[in-house]
Simulated assay, not measured.
Amino acid sequence: MARIDLSDTLQTPFSMVSKKVDLLIPPSVAFILNLLLEIAMRRVIIRPYYFGMGGSKIGWFTFELLNFIISFLILAWISAMFDDLLNGRETSLKDSWNRISTNFGNILIVSLLISVIVALGFILYVIPGVIIGVILTPVIPIMVKKNLNIQDSMKEATNFVFQDGNFWFLLVIYVITLLIGLIPYIGTAVSGFLFTLWASYACVKFS
């Protein structure tokens, strides 16, 4: 494991995409699904709120939960692709999907658990949600890269974040994507797109 090179993380995924266009597909799926969620949220949650029909914390929580589940599942998919490419192996959408499907049960469980915890953190207080997200984000890329079970992935991720001094680098990625997420209408979708690219690359390459 090593410390994340932030400059490399923010730039290299885009140069890799230019050489391997397939890399665009998983984050593009996240973009489309998150955009649809954003539209639904504005119709179901925000619009009723402004028309005096009340805002629902349950609605916000559901939106955040679905948003994170999508992002973390896509994170697993693109992590498999980055791992292949960074190790000089050919990859494809089918091969990378087949790879994560062998450990899909653990990936799904972790995605659900992390999504619930992070979504609750964001609904109750934003800062705890960010901190929890930073700590737990590497779990899935590390699980995919090293084909570990849930317990070992959590241990490796904790070491990667704290022992290797990567907390602040991951925090920067999180904050950048959160700020982008504040852009009206498309912010959440763009944020999800960039988060899956940057977080997967950083965690796969430097873990």
Rank of each mutant, 00 (worst) to 15 (best):
F169G: 05
P184N: 14
A76V: 10
I150C: 09
D5R: 03
S200I: 00
T91A: 15
L10E: 07
G121S: 11
M53A: 07
I186Y: 14
R99Y: 04
S92Q: 12
K146M: 11
P128N: 13
I183W: 07
E64T: 04
R47C: 06
I135D: 08
F14C: 10
N87W: 13
I114Q: 10
F63N: 14
L197M: 13
F31K: 08
P184F: 02
A76F: 01
F162H: 04
S71L: 07
P26M: 04
Q11M: 14
N103T: 13
M16A: 13
P26F: 12
L182S: 13
A40C: 01
I46R: 10
Y125W: 06
Q151V: 09
F195H: 12
L85T: 04
I142M: 08
Y49R: 13
I100T: 08
V144T: 00
P13N: 09
N103W: 02
S153C: 05
G181R: 14
F61V: 15
F193M: 12
P184R: 11
G192S: 06
I74N: 05
D84R: 09
V21W: 08
F122S: 04
T137E: 04
I74M: 06
S56W: 02
T188D: 06
A2E: 14
F51A: 06
F14Q: 15
I131P: 14
Q151R: 13
L136E: 04
I183A: 09
D95I: 15
R42D: 12
Q163F: 10
F206E: 00
T196D: 01
I4G: 02
W168L: 10
I45Q: 09
T9S: 03
I127Q: 05
V175P: 08
L75T: 03
F169Q: 10
N166A: 05
G165V: 11
F72V: 06
T196K: 00
V126Y: 09
P13T: 01
F193L: 13
A189V: 15
I74P: 09
E90K: 13
I39M: 11
F72S: 07
P128D: 03
L170E: 08
P138N: 04
E64S: 06
V175A: 04
L124I: 14
I127E: 09
S191I: 02
G59S: 10
F104S: 15
W77E: 01
D95Y: 12
P26Q: 05
L33N: 03
F82I: 01
V161M: 08
P128K: 00
K145S: 00
L178E: 13
I70P: 08
S111I: 14
I69S: 01
P128E: 07
V118A: 10
D5E: 14
D152R: 15
D84Y: 06
W97E: 05
S115D: 13
I131T: 08
T177G: 07
T62V: 12
I25G: 05
K145V: 00
S56E: 10
S153E: 12
F31P: 07
N147G: 12
V126H: 11
M154K: 02
P141K: 01
S200K: 00
P141V: 03
A119E: 01
R99E: 10
T188Q: 11
L136A: 02
L124P: 03
G54S: 15
E90T: 10
G88M: 03
I127F: 08
W60E: 13
K205Q: 03
L93N: 03
N106A: 15
A2M: 08
G55P: 06
F72L: 10
L6T: 02
T91H: 03
T158K: 11
N34H: 05
